[in-house]
Write a protein that binds this DNA or RNA. Structure first.
Lengths: 281, 281
DNA sequence: CAGGGTCGATACCTCACGGGTATCGGTCTC
DNA sequence: GAGACCGATACCCGTGAGGTATCGACCCTG
């Protein structure tokens, strides 16, 4: 199978519409139809069921969608890591660390300082990402290590070491009825009359629903201070809050574990050293 | 990047010879040369240094070789898993378990029995592999779970649960001077005058060196009984030994951990259930 | 040092295949 | 029943992957 075929299939499987998929791929619809049916012939199984009004995935198609995404990530990672290895072998060794913008800030600062003090430390480029974006950078080879947060981020297929586990706080507008409480329980949050924010999906688009569309933490905090939404965040986020929002501990919220993650095939000494440094913090 | 280009590069990087690589790929040498230099142009970096007498990898080339192997495995896995999903959704659900031929036999038998007794258990096809071959089956989607042995097998990029940890015994020809000992230390083995066996590499070929070429455990045991070689094996292997070889415990040998492993992206309920069953043993 | 052998690069040709346009056939809506 | 929508089919074209022949650099060997 060629990656072109996988890209084509993923586009159709995600759009569930040949016309839109073709448009997204920048080709015409007929060659796309042909490519998919050729793929089906080669695999010896239908991947999509087409009625002229709708397209749906078969069981085999769902498997291929999942596997093809992983395979395409691996191919792109091969390309990116090779590119980066080329520039690294020319100039100063550099590793890219991906972190969620606005999260784990203090930990990140400490880590960068501690690592920079190590002998033979590489230069660290910090890539601040929208939530959920760090894994993509890792999996596609544009980053070497990432700071992630279980259970929010998907850690499948990554090597991981735990750094800290924290309880969560709910971040509310200042005037909100619950904002006066010293502590809350998850059940209390059900009564909140505000919609939860909507984050962009991996395709950069927003799901339908109530709640404001949100891209980063600055936006989010502003929306909270305007009384438009609320949010559950790790305790350590408190130190970054503006004074026009209120944080209240939620006793029985799921704990959040900040982890350092890297691709399992990584052979970089620099990454290994940075991880060791992180574990000593 | 297309998988064709990756396959071409891997062939050249492994052979370090354009002519042989082309032959292995079933194409002529000129298109191969062209494809590689086109790849280099696109990546913006040389991958190989050619002097008309030898071809060597650059640093970037070494990275690409490593990454390309992983990517090609992922692509093949996508194909195989889709194929298998197609037949599974037609007939009875089946999972493929890969295990080293001749190793962990009792554990495997117990596992298969215990799993078969579970409600809703899938049919389990057992693939008995040459040593080191199980991972390939897992990574290329031809198997769903495998029984592996740390530290012998490479577990990078696989999800793993430990099953048992054992000490090792050395398996010797019956008449060997050390075979009368009740127990040994690693230092004692240095004095053994026999060469260690050679196993085939991932390309199916044998490295040069002394020691007999060996494909499976039957062969190995026969060669030991003939006084041609010796071998270090997990304790549990004793129950499988012929009576014309001798096993002696080695007190300070590295312990071997038998693990159950599966691809990190696996979503199969059946695999999860089999792993749970294995952990209860 | 001439001559032959080895090996990757280059030149040039061919054709298969990926991609385009036009159109068909089936289905839903009004 | 007309029209819109959508995937499949028919047919054409150009790119580019792959082939053969050959070159040029390098290493032997007598």
């Amino acid at each position: 199978m060629e990656t072109r075929e996988l890209r084509y299939f993923v586009a159709v499987a995600e759009e569930l519409h040949f016309g839109r998929a073709a448009e997204r791929l920048g080709i015409a619809q007929p060659p796309l139809s042909r490519a998919i049916s050729q793929l089906e012939r080669r695999l010896g199984t239908p991947l999509l069921t087409r009625s002229s009004r709708s397209v749906t995935l078969t069981a085999a198609g769902a498997v291929l969608l999942h596997e093809a995404r992983a395979a395409l990530d691996a191919v792109e990672a091969a390309e990116q890591r090779t590119r980066r290895a080329a520039v690294a072998s020319a100039g100063r060794p550099t590793i890219v660390l991906a972190s969620k913008a606005g999260a784990s800030n203090e930990l990140l600062a400490k880590l960068l300082d501690a690592y920079a003090a190590e002998p033979g430390a590489a230069h660290v480029d910090v890539a601040l990402c929208a939530p959920g974006e760090q894994q993509r950078l890792l999996r596609t080879g544009r980053a070497d290590v990432a700071i992630l947060h279980a259970p929010y981020d998907d850690l499948t297929g990554l090597d991981v070491e735990d750094l800290v586990t924290e309880t969560q706080v709910v971040i509310l507008p200042p005037g909100h009825p619950l904002s006066a409480s010293r502590e809350l329980r998850m059940a209390d949050l059900d009564g909140i009359d505000l919609p939860v924010p909507r984050w962009p999906g991996r395709d950069g688009r927003y799901a339908d629903g109530p709640g404001p569309e949100v891209r980063d933490h600055t936006q989010l905090l502003q929306l909270i201070s305007l009384g438009r939404t609320y949010f559950l965040a790790p305790e350590s986020a408190r130190s970054q809050l503006r004074d026009d929002v209120v944080a209240v501990p939620v006793l029985d919220a799921r704990t959040v574990t900040t982890v350092v993650a890297w691709p399992p095939h990584s052979r970089s000494q620099h990454v290994a050293q940075l991880v060791r440094t992180a574990l000593r913090l």
